[in-house]
Design a protein around this nucleic acid. Structure first.
Lengths: 119, 119
DNA sequence: TCCACATTTCGGAAAATATCGAATGAGAGA
DNA sequence: TCTCTCATTCGATATTTTCCGAAATGTGGA
């Protein structure tokens, strides 16, 4: 990932409404939610939300797909992973122990032994 | 870390000049660099850079300290860790395997067996 | 084909952010 | 104290972002 792409990704998350969208969709999983459902849940006008969703999709944070008349948005796991990897790679460049600390916190609540099953 | 703090941190990184500052200071390590040295290295007018540095410090990404007449800025490892943890915590909330993938990439270039020594 | 629904695009105004020269502040040496 | 230097703050302008109602688009059913 090059710098410009990372900046777009960070900008996409650096906004109250968009960060809330992100969190909702991460929890929602691969199926995602229809644009209208997100607007209703977050109480944001559809046109405003649409702008945000478009921006987030352009930044590679969200994926969109059509199902009948609705458009579903879901967290783009690959894109998010790329962004986080870019950030941690930068950090580790100078200070390896930072990533290690982060890693410990991130994996604290899960079961490491079952990691293979999720691939 | 609550939402608003995370947004400030993300905004602080979502800018070309500021991201370059961040990367330079992460590599530079705990000693950091004087404001003037950063301005010279990145070829940014001092007053412009000062605005960015202040913003990044306010967001908890940078630490400042005075040494004689100069003001040194260094990456705030604890603050950055808090931001990354907030993001990965959100991701893991719905999809534990995302963090695991990230973790593998982040630790790929280091020696896992010596992790204990760095605490 | 015609209508209804879900969403996006348009338009234009308000707010926030970015930029940088000039003025200001504050530390250190003569 | 005077002055030099490093850095910040001020001020004014330019650019970008945000917001949302109204209009347009496109999809599917009757």
């Amino acid at each position: 990932m090059e710098e410009n792409e990372a900046i777009r990704g960070l900008s996409a998350l650096a906004h109250e409404t968009r960060l809330r969208v992100f969190r909702v969709l991460v929890v929602e999983g691969p199926g995602g939610l229809a644009a209208g459902a997100i607007a209703a849940r977050l109480d944001v006008p559809p046109s405003t939300l649409s702008t945000h969703l478009g921006l987030m999709e352009g930044a590679g944070i969200l994926r969109r797909s059509r199902v009948r008349r609705q458009i579903f948005y879901a967290a783009d796991i690959e894109g998010i992973r790329r962004l986080l990897t870019f950030l941690t790679a930068d950090c580790c460049q100078g200070r390896p122990e930072l990533c290690r600390t982060l890693v410990e916190l991130a994996t604290a609540g899960s079961e490491p032994d079952r990691a293979e099953e999720n691939r």
